[in-house]
Design a protein around this nucleic acid. Structure first.
Lengths: 135, 135
DNA sequence: CCGAATCCACCTTGATACTG
DNA sequence: CAGTATCAAGGTGGATTCGG
């Protein structure tokens, strides 16, 4: 039996989506590009911090997003969470070796970005100008 | 006049969001982590391709998402779009030097991911197991 | 002090159908 | 062959409120 073009595309999409979920590169990319992960990583790069200190350092994050980000990173083994059950409780977050090994990658991206941001902006300006011509 | 804690956090968030939009690192990260950009970049890394060839190579992408991705990359100066107004029309996409310079960065991320994926999976398994204990 | 749960508005994606 | 327009649906971030 022959398939229509649409059916073939649909099948391709499904297998693609399945593969994407297992693709290591994409998972890491998803983590790295998370709005808050970058900042949490950078903040903890200088040393362990308590929850409240993190909230101050990553000013702008909702409490929800901060906790969500920390849980995710903890689950992936990027950071450790140590609890001192005192009154008041004391929770400290610190990078694991795995988490620290991510810092150079982050830096590589930042470096590329800073080296090329001017060129990108020129390209955008050119493109938008031509778009205006077409209108 | 004194501000409440909430007001201070809201202000911090606003300035943070404003800065984020200008941050080169974040812009690049947003581009790199786009669902389809990775694949288009990889596909064109081997040489120029026509629209239809791209659609085949990046099987799974909707034509809408493919075009959207291509436009975005063209605007950022990552690729060139050359049109031959014949019948039928012929449109070819090729990476610019800027676009090609992004490939090593992409590869660096992929390398890190593949080196550490096993460790991440172990961490996740550990974390989920402990979560089950708590339940 | 630390965190979980809920509600809601928004944005992005994808399906579909149509033009030069 | 190449590209555009429209619309519904789902995921995501944020405000808020409550609990250990």
């Amino acid at each position: 039996m022959t398939l229509t073009a649409d059916q073939r595309r649909a099948a391709a999409r499904d297998t693609y989506n399945a593969n994407l979920l297992e693709c290591p590169g994409h998972q890491v990319l998803a983590t790295l590009s998370d709005k808050w992960v970058t900042l949490v990583l950078a903040a903890l790069g200088d040393g362990p911090l308590r929850h409240t200190e993190l909230a101050r350092t990553v000013a702008g994050a909702t409490q929800k997003m901060l906790t969500q980000t920390l849980r995710k990173l903890e689950r992936e083994g990027m950071l450790d969470r140590t609890i001192e059950t005192s009154v008041p409780p004391k929770v400290t977050y610190s990078l694991t070796p795995l988490g620290m090994s991510l810092l150079p990658v982050q830096r590589a991206i930042k470096d590329w970005a800073e080296r090329h941001v001017a060129e990108i902006e020129r390209a955008r300006a050119r493109y938008d100008e031509n778009a205006a011509d077409r209108a």
